[in-house]
Structure formats: structure tokens, C-alpha cells
Lab assay of single mutants.
Amino acid sequence: AFSSEQLARLKREFNENRYLTERRRQQLSSELGLNEAQIKIWFQNKRA
């Protein structure tokens, strides 16, 4: 489960760009304390 802070950040990123570069995913992973797979799957689900 994502914290409300993490979700807000993911939604902001998604609004700016529906697709993440690998580098951006790595940055978000480290900033949010999530693993890259969690972020990747969140974006895939959000696009679906």
C-alpha cells in the first residue's frame, strides 16, 4: 500500500508524463522509498 504522500507524488508525475524513463523511475524509487517495480506497475495500472 502507498502512503497518501507517495500517491500524491505519483499522481503529479503521471500528470506531467504518462511514461517514465528508467532514470526517472530510479529517482522516484529512491525519493519515495519504493522499489522500481512498484512504481512501474502503478504507472501501468494508471494508464490502463
Rank of each mutant, 00 (worst) to 15 (best):
R24A: 07
F2V: 05
L10G: 01
S30R: 14
A8S: 08
N35V: 06
N35I: 06
R23S: 14
R24K: 11
L7D: 05
L10P: 00
E36H: 05
R18K: 11
Q38S: 08
A1S: 12
E13N: 02
S30Y: 14
N35T: 15
F2N: 02
L28H: 00
I39V: 09
R47E: 08
I41W: 14
E31Y: 04
R47F: 10
L7A: 04
T21W: 04
E31M: 05
A8V: 07
R47L: 15
Q38E: 12
R9I: 12
I41G: 08
Q38I: 14
L32G: 00
S30F: 14
N15T: 10
S4K: 13
Q44G: 06
L32W: 03
E22R: 15
L34K: 02
K46P: 04
Y19W: 11
K46W: 13
E22V: 14
S3N: 10
S29G: 06
S3W: 03
L34N: 00
F2G: 02
Q6E: 03
I39T: 01
E16D: 08
N35P: 15
A8T: 08
W42S: 00
K11P: 01
L28Y: 00
K11L: 15
S29A: 15
K46F: 12
L28P: 00
Y19E: 08
Q6I: 11
A37D: 15
R12A: 14
S3G: 04
K40H: 15
E31F: 04
R25E: 06
R18M: 11
R24G: 05
G33S: 06
R12V: 09
S3Y: 03
K40G: 11
E22M: 10
T21P: 06
R9M: 07
Q6K: 04
S29N: 01
A1Q: 12
E13V: 05
Q44V: 07
K40T: 15
Q27A: 10
R9T: 07
Y19G: 04
W42N: 00
Q26D: 04
R18F: 05
E31W: 04
S30I: 14
N45P: 02
N35S: 15
L20I: 09
E36K: 05
N15D: 13
F2K: 02
E16Y: 08
T21D: 11
I39H: 00
A48N: 11
I41N: 14
E5D: 09
R12N: 07
L28T: 01
L20W: 04
E31L: 06
L7P: 00
I41L: 12
R9Q: 06
E31S: 05
R25H: 05
N45L: 13
A48S: 09
F14G: 02
E31R: 02
N35Q: 11
F43P: 01
S30T: 13
A37S: 12
S30P: 01
Q27D: 08
A1M: 13
E16K: 14
E13H: 04
N35F: 07
L10A: 01
N35D: 14
E22Y: 08
F14H: 02
A48H: 11
S4V: 13
I41H: 11
A48F: 09
F43G: 00
K46L: 09
Q6S: 04
R9E: 06
L32F: 03
T21I: 03
S30V: 14
R24E: 08
K40A: 15
R9S: 06
R25M: 15
L28Q: 00
N17T: 06
L7V: 08
N45E: 14
Q44Y: 10
I39M: 03
E13G: 01
L28D: 00
N15R: 12
A37G: 09
F2T: 02
T21S: 12
Q26C: 07
L32R: 00
Q26E: 08
E16F: 08
K46I: 08
R24Y: 06
S29F: 03
G33I: 03
R12E: 12
E36V: 10
R18V: 06
N15M: 12
Q44N: 08
F43D: 01
L10N: 00
G33L: 05
E16Q: 12
L28I: 07
Q38R: 07
Q26I: 10
Q38F: 11
F14A: 03
A8M: 09
E22D: 13
R9V: 10
N45F: 09
I41V: 09
S4E: 14
I39N: 01
R18T: 06
R47K: 06
K11Y: 14
L10C: 03
Q6L: 05
L32V: 04
E5S: 09
E16M: 10
W42G: 00
F43I: 02
N35G: 10
R23Y: 12
A8H: 07
G33T: 04
Q26P: 01
S3I: 02
A8N: 09
A8E: 14
Q26R: 14
E31G: 02
S3M: 04
A37P: 04
N45T: 10
Q26A: 11
L10V: 01
N45G: 07
N45Y: 10
F14T: 01
R25D: 01
R23M: 12
N45K: 11
F43K: 00
Y19H: 13
A37L: 14
F14I: 03
E31A: 06
F2H: 03
L10K: 00
T21E: 04
A1N: 11
R18S: 11
L34G: 01
K11S: 14
I39F: 02
R18E: 09
G33A: 05
L32Y: 02
E22T: 14
E31D: 08
N17F: 06
A8W: 05
S4Y: 11
F2A: 02
E36T: 06
R23W: 09
R9K: 07
N45M: 13
Y19Q: 07
R12F: 10
T21Q: 04
L32E: 00
R12I: 11
R9D: 02
N45R: 11
S29V: 08
R25Q: 12
G33R: 05
G33E: 06
Q44T: 08
A1T: 13
L20F: 03
Q27C: 08
Y19C: 10
R25T: 15
W42C: 03
N35E: 14
F43N: 00
E5T: 08
L32N: 01
E5L: 08
F14D: 01
N15C: 12
Q6C: 05
N15K: 12
L7I: 11
L7C: 12
R12Y: 10
A1P: 12
A37E: 15
N15Y: 10
K11A: 14
E16S: 07
A8R: 13
L32D: 00
N17R: 07
R24P: 01
I39C: 02
K40E: 15
N35Y: 06
L10E: 00
Y19K: 06
K46T: 14
E13A: 12
F43M: 03
L28G: 00
N35A: 14
F2M: 09
K46E: 15
R23I: 13
I41F: 10
R25F: 11
I41A: 13
L7Q: 05
K11T: 15
